[in-house]
Simulated assay, not measured.
Amino acid sequence: MARDVQITFDCADPAGLSAFWAEVLGYRLQDPPKGFESWERALEAMGVPPESRNDASAVVDPDGSGPRLFFQKVPEGKQAKNRVHLDVRAAPGLEGEARMAALEKEAERLVSLGATRLGRQEPAPPLGAGHVVLADPEGNEFCLD
Rank of each mutant, 00 (worst) to 15 (best):
V48N: 10
D63G: 08
W39C: 09
L25Y: 07
P49D: 13
F71C: 08
L43M: 15
R53D: 04
L17V: 01
L94G: 02
G77K: 14
D13S: 15
D13H: 14
D13E: 15
Q30T: 12
D55P: 01
A45V: 05
K78Y: 00
R68F: 02
E23M: 07
G47N: 11
S65V: 08
P32D: 09
A15S: 14
A22Q: 01
R89Y: 08
L25K: 07
F36G: 10
A80I: 09
P50S: 11
A42S: 13
G77P: 04
D87F: 02
E40N: 05
N54Y: 05
A91M: 08
A22E: 02
A56N: 01
S18P: 04
A45P: 08
T8V: 15
K81D: 10
A90N: 02
A42N: 10
R68I: 12
F70E: 09
A90Q: 02
E44W: 05
P75C: 01
A22V: 03
G35C: 00
F20S: 01
G16C: 09
E23S: 12
G66P: 05
S65F: 07
E95C: 00
A56H: 11
V24N: 02
G64E: 13
A22W: 06
Q30R: 15
A22F: 01
A15N: 08
Q72L: 14
V60H: 01
R28W: 01
E76K: 09
N82I: 00
L86R: 00
E23H: 03
Q72V: 12
E76C: 00
P92G: 02
P33A: 15
F70C: 04
V60P: 01
F9M: 11
D31S: 15
P67E: 09
S52C: 14
D10W: 07
K73E: 04
D10V: 01
N54A: 11
G66C: 08
K78V: 06
R89A: 10
F36K: 12
S57M: 07
A80T: 14
H85K: 03
K78H: 06
P50L: 08
